[in-house]
Amino acid sequence: MKPAILIHGPTASGKTALSIEVARKYNGEIVNADSMQVYSELKVISARPDAEEMEGIPHHLFGHMPAGERYSTGIWLEQARAVIEDIQKREKTAVVVGGTGLYLLALVDGLSDIPPVPEDVRHEVLEISKKDGLRGLKIRLQAVDPEAAERINDNDRQRLMRAYEVWLATGRALTSFQQQRTKGVLNPDEWLGVALTPPRSKLYARIDKRFEGMLMEGAMEEARKLVDLGIDPELPAMKAHGMPWLSAFIRGEIDSETAAENAKRDTRRYAKRQFTWIGRQFPFWPRIPGTELSTRMRVISALYKEVDR
């Protein structure tokens, strides 16, 4: 069985081009590990690779979910398990690529077995966050799950809400579930993982340029179609990079320049959080700070020789 190759990195760091090159060299097929690229309606906004970019390399778990459905790490893990096993049975290399670090962690370390949270509980926590703000939500969380409250950043709305949702739904702290994990899909000797860590100034400039390109390629039209569908704004697809600000422009709440600048700013901030995540959650993954494709391939080739013995 050929070792899987896992590629992680912040948004706009060049993961797509690298994954194509890796798949070509190692007779591989690409498996998506990006939580927004799973949605069929988010082609431009999620920077999902198109047919030309794929260059004939088989791609899996891209654009296969409707934006009106809630996707989760657990669902992705089971789908990825089936895809990777099939790729390996055909004696090909699974190249798993994406910026959703939790997906990759679940793949190699397993996933906490947390029961589903009912929609009425999600709605209750959403109303609490609107009424009391993030500070109020964190104070509530500190009373029931102090470990999670200490670990989660004060401005991380999604994770604060998730932790409090779990407590309301189960009566147990999220931390207690995280201490009980299912087995990962890949054993330690069955994969190689690398993290792309390009210079931040170059990455931030690329983020700005890429968003401008997205607007030219139809991001606004894509956002308008999603808004017209009347999808719940709290669903993950409606929180894709730039989507909240494009939606606000479409509703007439802000002008186009403000929407674009705020979208770029938030995406840069997200990239910064991804760097932090890599530092904390992937401490032993080799870093590739270089941005040249040839440099990245040399690093992966050297590492792959060590695991493919």
Rank of each mutant, 00 (worst) to 15 (best):
R181F: 03
Y304H: 04
P198H: 11
A263M: 11
Y103H: 09
S256M: 15
A80V: 05
K209F: 13
L6W: 01
A271R: 08
W277Y: 15
A302I: 04
V97D: 05
D109C: 06
A169H: 00
V44D: 08
L141M: 02
D34T: 07
D208V: 11
W277S: 11
D232R: 12
V125N: 02
A94Y: 02
R81M: 01
V95E: 06
H8K: 12
L160M: 02
L77I: 08
M243F: 08
F177L: 03
K25A: 07
I57G: 03
L303P: 05
P198N: 12
G101H: 05
Y39C: 09
A223H: 06
H64C: 14
Q79V: 01
E91N: 14
P116L: 07
A51T: 13
A94H: 01
A149G: 03
G218W: 11
M36I: 00
P244V: 04
P244K: 06
K225A: 14
E53N: 04
K209Q: 15
A195N: 06
R309P: 15
L141G: 01
F62N: 09
M216E: 15
A51S: 15
V44K: 06
E257F: 07
I114W: 00
G184T: 05
P289T: 11
L141P: 00
R268D: 04
E234M: 07
W76L: 01
G171N: 04
D145I: 00
D232W: 12
L229S: 07
Q37C: 08
L246F: 15
H8M: 15
T73R: 11
T197F: 05
P233C: 10
E85D: 12
E85S: 08
T258C: 10
E69I: 12
N155K: 14
L141H: 00
R24C: 00
P49S: 09
G218A: 13
A195F: 04
L246R: 08
P118D: 10
A106P: 03
E212A: 12
V166R: 00
I254C: 11
V31G: 02
V83F: 03
E21Y: 04
D189R: 12
I114D: 00
L104D: 06
M36A: 10
R135H: 11
F62P: 07
S301M: 05
E165C: 06
I75G: 06
H64T: 13
H123T: 14
W285D: 10
M216D: 13
I231M: 04
L303A: 07
M220A: 11
L196E: 05
D50L: 09
L226S: 04
P244A: 05
W191G: 03
P66S: 11
S19R: 05
N187G: 14
K43R: 15
K138W: 03
V97E: 14
E165W: 02
V299P: 02
Q274F: 03
K2V: 05
Q142E: 15
A163D: 01
A240H: 07
P188V: 06
P283E: 13
S46R: 03
A51N: 12
